[in-house]
Amino acid sequence: MREEAERRPLAPEEISRLRELLRRRERELEEESPESGVLGEIREALSRMARGEYGRCVDCGRWIRLRRLETIPWAKRCRSCQERWEMLEAV
Rank of each mutant, 00 (worst) to 15 (best):
L10T: 00
E44G: 11
R84A: 15
C81T: 09
E41K: 13
E89I: 10
R43P: 01
V38N: 08
Y54M: 08
R25I: 00
R51I: 05
R48D: 02
S36M: 04
R8M: 06
R65E: 15
W85D: 12
Q82G: 07
E3Q: 10
E14H: 01
L18R: 05
R2V: 13
C78K: 02
E28P: 00
R25S: 02
D59M: 06
S36H: 05
G61S: 03
R23Y: 00
R79N: 05
E70T: 04
E30R: 14
E41W: 06
E4L: 15
M1G: 14
V38E: 15
Y54C: 05
R17E: 14
A75Y: 06
E30F: 07
E3R: 08
M1Q: 11
L46V: 00
G40H: 12
R24E: 12
E89T: 11
R8G: 04
E44D: 13
S33K: 13
R25C: 01
R8Y: 07
W85H: 15
R84H: 13
E28N: 01
E53V: 03
Q82A: 14
D59N: 08
V58D: 11
A75L: 04
E13D: 14
I64M: 04
E83V: 12
G40C: 06
L21Q: 11
R25H: 07
C81L: 04
M1A: 13
E6H: 07
M87C: 00
S80E: 13
S47T: 07
A75H: 05
R7G: 10
E41D: 11
S47F: 09
S33P: 00
Q82K: 12
M49E: 09
E6V: 10
S36Q: 06
M1D: 10
W74A: 02
A45W: 05
S36C: 02
G37Q: 15
R77K: 06
Y54D: 10
G55W: 10
R65P: 02
R62F: 09
L29P: 00
G52A: 07
R48N: 03
G55E: 10
M87V: 11
E35R: 14
E53H: 03
C57I: 13
R19E: 07
S36P: 04
R56A: 03
P34H: 08
R84Y: 13
V58W: 07
E28A: 02
E14P: 01
E13N: 10
E89K: 15
E3N: 07
M1H: 14
R43C: 04
S47G: 10
R62P: 00
V91Q: 14
E32V: 02
E31Q: 13
C81F: 05
L69Y: 07
R17G: 04
R51C: 07
S36A: 12
L88A: 11
W74M: 02
V38D: 04
R67A: 15
R8D: 03
C57R: 12
G40V: 07
A75E: 09
P9W: 01
V58T: 12
R7V: 09
W85T: 11
E3A: 09
L46N: 01
R8N: 08
R84S: 14
L46M: 01
A45G: 01
A5D: 12
E53S: 05
L88K: 14
D59I: 10
A90V: 06
R62T: 07
E14T: 06
S16E: 13
S47E: 14
A11K: 10
